[in-house]
Design a protein around this nucleic acid. Structure first.
Lengths: 199, 199
DNA sequence: TTATTGAATGAATATATACTCATTATAAAA
DNA sequence: TTTTATAATGAGTATATATTCATTCAATAA
């Protein structure tokens, strides 16, 4: 008789993963409108028909990916609000960004995707803006703590949080713009935006 | 008899300006593919037909704007390569960004537009990437000078140039994402990425 | 071998949007 | 008031792309 439930399940899971991986790359690179379903299918190595067996519309696929990204960002907020030393949190965070951007691009694609979602005005736009605001507030709080401990520069915490996060965002954008000419700043350079210089 | 040459000329100029202003805003905000010619016409307060009297295609309009932006960036490169003190150049540059981003958004739209051009793979993509690379190199050279004068932080100049420019880029992106929640960092915060702390 | 089940395909269709062009509006001067 | 040159309009057409669905494929076990 035919394949078992488990076998079919595994097949479906595999194609969904191929679709998601292809879509996240293309959406982050070219944006929602400029990415065709044929592009996604080609990149995933499947047919358009199969894509539509898994997602009702292109927008549904986009929204799923964005929601996943929002979830990741919320997890990040939890890390930032933990009791670990502010300096350590930032170091850990920046190291992860650094590793990601010199390798897989997962995190930076996530951020880019969320940016696209804001511009693209779909059902998830509001959620993204809220997640962004939440992340910013948590960084702001972290900076206040760090300043009290004398670990961070003085200055308006909200401004510093914006500048710090903007830099991360901007690095993703620049990397896409410059391709092979892009030179990734070291974690030490990036953390310098917040950290007090050693004395 | 009908209007004079000059009157017609003035009319055409006025509509071209309306089109450009509308297009630059929309392209920067939503990207090339997601911006419809109807959107542009509506924003400009004219008809689609009139738009096509001035531009053969949507892409021609986009390319013209991007080329204008590239020209602006090249002018910036000239400022950066001048003999003025590195610290003064950066201060002047950052002040201009600050004023722009708290008011008109012209410069930040320009940068965003160029980014879009990189993603969108049109005739101007190559020019933009070259202009970006040139700007980065000029900043890198400026940083080397500034380090020799003891005005700037130590550290790899190429990395610092990338981080600095990324921050500017990222601020534009964040501003669009956060809208009214966006808090613009002060010029002092931004220049701190490069400047040695006063002793 | 063959029957069976669901994955996979891609040409056909629906829909959205870039572009055209026949027509109208406008202001100046005869 | 009429003529004239050119700006301005927007419904209509062409084209591109999202979505559907009738058909084929592939692995299993009887």
């Amino acid at each position: 008789m035919p394949r078992t439930k488990e076998q079919y399940e595994a097949m479906r899971e595999a194609t969904v993963e191929k679709i998601q991986s292809a879509a996240i790359t293309l959406f982050a690179q070219k944006g929602f409108a400029a990415t065709g379903v044929q592009d996604i299918a080609d990149e995933a190595g499947i047919s358009v028909g199969l894509l539509y067996r898994h997602y009702k519309t292109k927008e549904e696929l986009f929204n799923e990916l964005v929601n996943y990204a929002v979830g990741g960002l919320n997890a990040l907020v939890n890390l930032i609000m933990s009791d670990i030393q502010p300096r350590e949190i930032i170091e850990q965070f920046v190291n992860e960004i650094y590793n990601d951007m010199t390798n897989s691009m997962d995190f930076s694609n996530m951020l880019t995707l969320m940016t696209q979602a804001v511009y693209t005005n779909t059902a998830v736009t509001q959620r993204v803006m809220e997640a962004d605001a939440r992340l910013l507030t948590s960084i702001e709080t972290l900076i206040k703590k760090g300043q009290q401990l004398g670990q961070f520069h003085p200055g308006d915490p909200a401004e510093m949080a914006t500048l710090f996060l903007s830099s991360i965002q901007g690095l993703g954008v620049m990397r896409a713009a410059l391709r092979e000419h892009f030179i990734m700043p070291s974690p030490e350079q990036i953390t310098k935006i917040l950290f007090q210089r050693e004395i």
